[in-house]
């Protein structure tokens, strides 16, 4: 993976001492109005540009992800939301043609630094995908997968407790309590997606990235997932890509609007929807483009 921040970009990368303070820094507030969410940034990106086989997909994105908040990424199809969210846990590493420049930090640590361990990063920054993708294993094994590979639990009992807790937090436990050995793929779409969320939170990540988690689900299943996200935000930092403006408004504290590979506007969700600064944002939130 090519990671070559230019000298100027390197100079702009906030060091770990200042990053946590950005939110309280009045200068930063001017520079980054999103800091008004009042929470320190859990993750940041600076000058992030991504291209696939030399075809640019993202240009120069500066964005802060506030801790214990829900950040929504919105924008028309193909604007780079998926590309952006996949940069946050280096999921783009597995695409051969993908090149990433600029910097992304997590707790002030540059996640694209050469000595950064992707495996450790991904245990801290978990991900839920657009299409539910349970493993071809039982519900129990699906949820226990992460704890097992990371050796998180000492005994079988501990493991079971963790699995049940994760299923409970994902709001799935009551529905599957007596068929934990059934294959994960036997669940309905919405249940599968909640299983994937349970699987992700079983690893106890700090950040959960969700790429259009409801796009394959019906409205009732969507409502369940939304409730779930609202509850999860107590303990996790959540980034969610969504196509639905209503969902972004209902769920998120902060919204970032992408258009044609650029971050056009970011800020408190209310501000972005009520008083967008940019014409393109206004058009989009009013349903004129997209």
């Amino acid at each position: 993976m090519a990671h070559a921040p230019t000298l100027t970009q390197v100079a702009e990368i906030p060091n770990s001492a200042t990053i946590g303070l950005l939110g309280d820094n009045p200068l930063a507030l001017l520079k980054h109005p999103e800091a008004r969410t009042g929470k320190p940034a859990k993750m940041t990106s600076r000058g992030l540009s991504v291209s696939y086989a030399n075809k640019p997909a993202l240009h120069d994105v500066d964005l802060d992800i506030p801790v214990n908040r829900v950040t929504a990424l919105i924008g028309p199809s193909g604007c780079g939301k998926t590309t952006y969210i996949r940069c946050l846990n280096r999921m783009n590493d597995i695409i051969d043609t993908c090149r990433v420049e600029g910097s992304v930090t997590h707790d002030g640590e540059d996640i694209y630094a050469p000595d950064q361990d992707v495996v450790r990063l991904r245990t801290r920054v978990g991900m839920v995908f657009q299409k539910p993708n349970p493993f071809p294993k039982s519900i129990y094994d699906n949820t226990a997968y992460g704890p097992r590979i990371h050796g998180m639990t000492g005994s079988r009992d501990e493991e079971r407790a963790l699995v049940l807790d994760s299923l409970r937090r994902a709001g799935l436990l009551d529905e599957v309590r007596d068929r934990l050995d059934a294959p994960g793929t036997s669940l309905s779409g919405g249940q599968q997606q909640r299983l994937c969320i349970a699987r992700a939170i079983a690893v106890r990540p700090e950040v959960i990235l969700m790429d259009e988690p409801c796009s394959a689900l019906d409205p009732i299943a969507t409502a369940r997932i939304e409730e779930l996200i609202a509850a999860l935000k107590q303990d996790y930092t959540i980034v969610i890509v969504t196509h639905s403006m209503q969902q972004a408004r209902r769920l998120s504290d902060k919204t970032a609007f992408f258009h044609l590979g650029r971050l056009v506007e970011q800020g408190n969700t209310e501000d972005v929807f009520e008083a967008p600064q940019d014409g393109r944002t206004r058009d989009y939130v009013m349903g004129r483009i997209g």
Partner: peptide, 27 residues
Amino acid sequence: VPDSLREAALGLGSTRSETIVRVILRA
């Protein structure tokens, strides 16, 4: 084996070999 399973496993912090042995070969 669909890439979505690969991504799911990698996204949970599996190494490549864990992804292969525990998920891909199984599927």
